[in-house]
């Protein structure tokens, strides 16, 4: 995958994610509504590829205004990842040389890999995660389970112990997937399904779409670093 193609695919996926987010605020009022409608309109233009560098810059300013409006991200990690992707894409779009474009987009790929590695590491060093207790607590009393039926999974400790280890190993072993295109493809399908399950069980739909928008960067980086 060439840098240009990877950048363009990321732009399109980010634009679609921003449109979905923006439409969710259509019932809001005041500045919240104005900022999200502006974001939705700009994202729709970004989809077309028209004046991408300028549109990215405008989306970036809009993202800063949203940070001010909510005195931080509206939806925590997913908004932060959205801003990270937008920043890297914008930097790559306005970079004067291809080398600088590669650094900007490569930084996104590195952060994507870190999002799994660090997340896996902080879990595996915690005894509560290794015993399955932490994941049981997520289901038992955290705000995330989307229904009583999902919360009831807290009563299945054996299943949650397996799930906790599956998540930790998937996250920690992610960098090994960079070895070949085939292993990376398998890993991205697995992590994509992981985000999908988080969306279904915990309502984290924004994470799902935003993380997918960063995937082209790591597909490009793997080929850039390891393809003959």
């Amino acid at each position: 995958m060439t840098l240009d193609l990877a950048l363009r695919v990321s732009e399109i996926m980010l634009a679609l994610a921003f449109i979905l987010q923006g439409l969710e605020h259509i019932g809001a009022r005041g500045r919240e509504r104005t900022l999200y409608l502006t974001r939705t309109g700009l994202a729709a233009i970004l989809l077309t590829g028209f004046l991408s560098p300028l549109i990215c810059l405008m989306l970036w300013i809009n993202a800063l205004l949203l940070l001010h409006r909510f005195q931080g991200p509206y939806n925590g990690g997913s908004d932060r990842m959205g801003l990270l992707i937008l920043t890297c894409i914008t930097a790559a779009n306005v970079a004067p040389t291809e080398r600088l474009q590669e650094y900007a987009f490569g930084y996104l790929a590195m952060q994507l890999a870190l999002s799994y590695i660090v997340s896996g590491w902080v879990k595996i060093v915690n005894p509560a995660w290794r015993s399955g207790q932490a994941l049981q607590d997520v289901f038992l009393y955290s705000a995330y389970p989307v229904s009583g039926e999902v919360r009831a999974l807290a009563a299945r400790p054996a299943l949650l112990l397996i799930a906790a280890w599956a998540v930790m190993l998937l996250e920690l072993l992610f960098p090994l997937a960079l070895a070949t295109q085939a292993t990376l493809a398998v890993a991205l399908v697995a992590t994509g399904l992981f985000h999908l399950s988080n969306a279904v069980l915990f309502g984290l739909n924004r994470f799902f779409w935003i993380w997918l928008a960063a995937y082209p960067s790591i597909i490009w980086l793997q080929q850039r670093l390891f393809a003959g």
Partner: peptide
């Protein structure tokens, strides 16, 4: 956002 901690559910 530019240098996230990525400490989800630590």
């Amino acid at each position: 956002a530019l240098a996230p901690s990525w400490r989800f559910f630590d």
